[in-house]
Structures are given as structure tokens and as C-alpha cells.
Amino acid sequence: MFSPVETTDLVQQIARQISDAIVSGRFKPAERLNELRLSQEFGTSRAPVREAARLLESQGLVVSSPRRGFFVRTLSAKDLDDIYELRIGLELHAADLAIQKIGDAELTALEAQIQNLYDLAEAGSIEERISADSSFHRMLCSFSGNDRLLKAFDDLATDMRAGIALIGTIYDDPYRMAETHVPILEALKKKDRQGLREALHFHIAAARDQIVPLFESLNKTP
């Protein structure tokens, strides 16, 4: 399941691999992180695995229980709704900053990412489509020039991707998913602030309105 890690940045490497496993759905909600088994797979002692788990706890991906260890965090439908509400405010602010400084190179990068979304709509996996969608929005946040804002987006994106992985299906037709990014790019090209805010809000809110009910119905399933 996991690959051996090098000694440099050992804890970070372990945390990254466990995080990827949670986001992709290989670790399920409430599943216990078996330190002994993980240390054997990573080829390390249990200490760096425990430190990695503590790091993931600080990021909100796992929770600890006294004398029982670390468990994958369980998200609720309300958690996801709150995340999307915060994401809308965060990305609208990022867009306001980005539109003032974005240039041809950044626009070309965003355009290439939309093409990637179209390509994945035909041949990509669910995980690849989710990752590509997240990458587009991360790029937009990075173009804001605000490093703290970008870090906040990364924290939210991890939770969102974990939630979508639990549903096991994409929240929209993959072609439609790619298509709804186009108005965002066009508004950026025109320096149309209001159009950008409307396109971005519609895109994120539409995802929220589909994902949250799906997640809620999943949790109600016996």
C-alpha cells in the first residue's frame, strides 16, 4: 500500500502518503491508523509514524483517542457545507486580488488546466478529475500573491477531496465540470471583476448544492 521513505523529511513524507491515502479513500472515515503496520510498510520505527499522525491531526485529517491511537476523521454533511461556504468567501477574495495582477502566462496556465479537465472528462479517473479541478482553483488562489490565503485553500481542499472520495462519484457530468471553468477564465481575460465573482460563485455553489446532499444521503444509508 505504501512505499519506503528516505530519511530526509521523514515525518513529512509519511504524512504526505497517509494524507493521499485518506483523500483517495483508501483509508475510510473512523478507520484506525495502525502504527505498527504502517511503520513496517514505510520501513521505519513507529516514532516518525506517530509524529506524522500528530501532524495530520493538526491539519484536521485525523483525530486521536487516549490509549487507542489515531483515527481518520469523520466528516459530516454540515462540515462540508461549512467548508464550501468558507471556500466561496476565500476564492472570491483571491479572485479580487488575482484579477489586478494576472498576466498572459497565468492565463495560459489556467487555459491549459481547463483543457486538462476536458481531456480527463473522456479518459480520466474520478480521483484525477477531482485533483485537476482542485489544481485550477489552487492556481487562481496562488495568482492572488497571498501565501496565507493559498495555505488556507490547501487546508480546505484536503477536506473537500476527502469528502468527495467518500461519496465515490463525481458531483457533476465531467464535461459540464470542465465547462463551468470557462466563464471564470473569460472574465479574468476581460478583467471583468463582477463577471468573475458571479462565475466563481456559481461554480462553487453548484458543486456544494450537489455534494452536500449526496454526502448527507450516504451518511443516512444503513
Score class of each variant (00 low, 15 high):
Met1Gln: 05
Met1Arg: 07
Met1Pro: 03
Ser3Ala: 10
Thr7Ser: 09
Thr8Ser: 03
Thr8Gly: 00
Leu10Asn: 02
Val11Glu: 09
Ala15Lys: 02
Ala15Gly: 14
Ile18His: 02
Ser24Ala: 15
Ser24Phe: 09
Phe27Thr: 05
Arg32Thr: 14
Arg32Leu: 15
Leu33Asn: 03
Glu35Phe: 04
Leu36Pro: 00
Arg37Leu: 10
Ser39Glu: 01
Glu41Ala: 10
Phe42Val: 02
Arg46Val: 03
Ala47Leu: 05
Pro48Val: 01
Leu55Ile: 00
Glu57Asn: 03
Ser58His: 05
Gln59His: 14
Leu61Asp: 02
Val63Gly: 08
Val63Lys: 15
Ser65Tyr: 15
Pro66Gly: 01
Arg67Ala: 07
Arg68Gly: 02
Val72Pro: 08
Arg73Ala: 14
Thr74Phe: 06
Leu80Trp: 02
Asp81Arg: 13
Glu85Pro: 01
Leu86Ala: 12
Ile88Phe: 04
Ile88Pro: 01
Gly89Thr: 00
Glu91His: 08
Ala95Leu: 07
Asp96Gly: 09
Ala98Met: 09
Lys101Pro: 00
Asp104Arg: 12
Asp104Gln: 09
Ala105Lys: 13
Glu106Ala: 13
Thr108Cys: 03
Leu110Phe: 08
Leu110Trp: 10
Leu110Glu: 07
Glu111Ser: 08
Gln113Asn: 14
Gln115Gly: 11
Gln115Tyr: 04
Ala121Val: 02
Ala121Gly: 15
Gly124Lys: 12
Gly124Asp: 09
Ile126Val: 13
Glu128Pro: 06
Arg129Ile: 10
Arg129Gln: 12
Ala132Gln: 07
Asp133Asn: 15
Ser135Ala: 15
Ser135Lys: 14
Ser135Phe: 06
Phe136Gly: 05
Arg138Ala: 09
Arg138Cys: 06
Ser142Val: 02
Ala152Leu: 07
Ala152Asp: 12
Phe153Pro: 05
Ala157Glu: 14
Thr158Ala: 13
Asp159Lys: 14
Gly168Phe: 07
Gly168Ser: 08
Tyr171Leu: 05
Asp172Gln: 10
Asp172Lys: 11
Pro174Ser: 04
Pro174Met: 04
Tyr175Trp: 11
Glu179Met: 13
Glu179Leu: 13
Thr180Asn: 11
His181Met: 10
Pro183Tyr: 12
Ile184Ser: 11
Leu185Ala: 08
Leu185Lys: 13
Leu185Phe: 08
Leu185Ser: 09
Glu186His: 12
Lys190Ala: 14
Asp192Pro: 06
Asp192Arg: 11
Asp192Lys: 11
Gln194Ile: 06
Gln194Lys: 13
His203Asn: 11
Val212Met: 12
Ser217Cys: 04
Asn219Tyr: 10
Lys220Cys: 07
Thr221His: 12
Pro222Thr: 10
